[in-house]
Design a protein around this nucleic acid. Sequence first.
RNA 1: GGCUCCUUGGUCAAGUGGUCAAGACACCGCCCUCUCACGGCGGUUACAGGAGUUCGAAUCUCCUAGGAGUCACCA
Length: 488
Amino acid sequence: MKVRTRFAPSPTGYMHIGNLRTALYAWLFAKKNKGDFILRIEDTDRNRLVDNACDIIYNTLRDTGLSYSEGPDVGGDYGPYIQSERKSIYGKYAKILVEKGAAYYCFCTKERLDALREEAAKEGKVFKYDKHCLKLSKEEVQAKLDAGEEYVIRQNIPLEGESSYFDNVYGEIKVPMSDMEDNILLKSDGWPTYNMANVIDDHLMEITHVIRGIEYLSSTPKYNLLYDALGWERPSYVHLPPVMKDKTKKLSKRNGDASYEDLINKGYLKEAIINYIALLGWNPGGEREIFSLEELAEVFSLEGLSKSSAIFDIEKLTWMNGEYIRALSKEDFITRASRFTDWGTDDPVKIEKIAGLIQPRIETLTQIDEKIAFLREMAAFDAELYSNKKNKTTPENSIPLIESAIEALSDIPEEGFVNDNLYQALIDVAEKNEVKNGKVLWPVRIAITGLSVTPGGATEIAELLGRKETLKRLEASLDNLKRFVSED
RNA sequence: GGCUCCUUGGUCAAGUGGUCAAGACACCGCCCUCUCACGGCGGUUACAGGAGUUCGAAUCUCCUAGGAGUCACCA
């Protein structure tokens, strides 16, 4: 049988990391097995509709490469793929379930239910519906229906025994019938609840492997009872542990935790995000950590899935993002980075030079601007920076060396103002003055940037700045230094 | 609280009766080096606790503790 998996989110207007990971695993499993991956939107809660929420889902899946062969916006042979367009289907099966005795009409009012709940709470017991309406005769039910009384349809769970199934991650799961409630399958507004809709749709869409969050682990036995009642084959189950913010809290929108979109806006690459979350709760075996989506699909297997929850570690994602950034071709890097910076210039040659210096030194695309800000304008003068014990430099002894450097660099013409020439010139200055290279290079770099840490060495930056600007900054810093020393 | 499930370093994790308990991120140190980053080398840190079973337990059993999920006309 052909493997078919699905991602079935409810449109909440937010794609959090845990959700994306669930979709990823379902996609990977389908691809690994040459099967189909489909998208279904679960929007049966008519009170919680969010505008454009579906677009976020479509765009995220498309953007990350988790393509679906069937879905609301792409069609397919098992549609519609939006539950709100499948209303009549659920009604039909609800009635069949009633006929088979696996479900029943319930006319209990909210008041009666609330009273029951209150009573249970008072006695310190867990509220459980008392199957009150199950006692109604066929005629009584029909009479109420004819009278137009409001109703719901509840699942009729046996009072005794237990229901069990095998979960591919957690193994054998057994739940006593007595712990399950006669859940509502069809609401009074005529819409189904998840309890019924997921079963009907997964069967009708011929889903072979249900891959979803662990929140359904303990209610799955109830769903299985429905499959059994309808005479349908149960799917294979894969329940996934949650992705956590910390030891006790789940990653969530409410906590303001990063969504996929947030991470993209923070300068993370989609490939890195996918790679990282694939490894968050799944281990490919071996020591390799960097995988493309295609490579993941080749090695994915259910055995590597973890049972325990995993804490989302932005530090590791950041490291991995750096790996991905460094692996980008220069062209690709510039294209992607340009969404986050204007490079401070329109000159493509200069942009390429800047990119060459920046690419190996950043871990997120948002770090570029801060790293190249000094190109636009030199940082404020700080004499302290000229003191460097390793290179034995001080504000005082930097002055003559910078003067020599200015002299040497002035001799280099505009067209020869490139790294190799500049480096050689400054090395010569050091040699002439009988000092170590660093003793010249350090103050020069400080003098043209005003920063202790820069993305590149003195001569690389000088090339970027150009002859005119380099000399101008050198002179300005020299003036500042002289003023500082004389005042001291 | 009932039920279901989980528990190896700060984090992700390998490990399925015999290992000096892998690896990665982070952190620290050293090297490389025109600062930083990259890269290279090295280091600190873990089997939640307690009973068993066994010649031998991270691995099997039980108990305790901690944590998660669930107990809606939400999914």
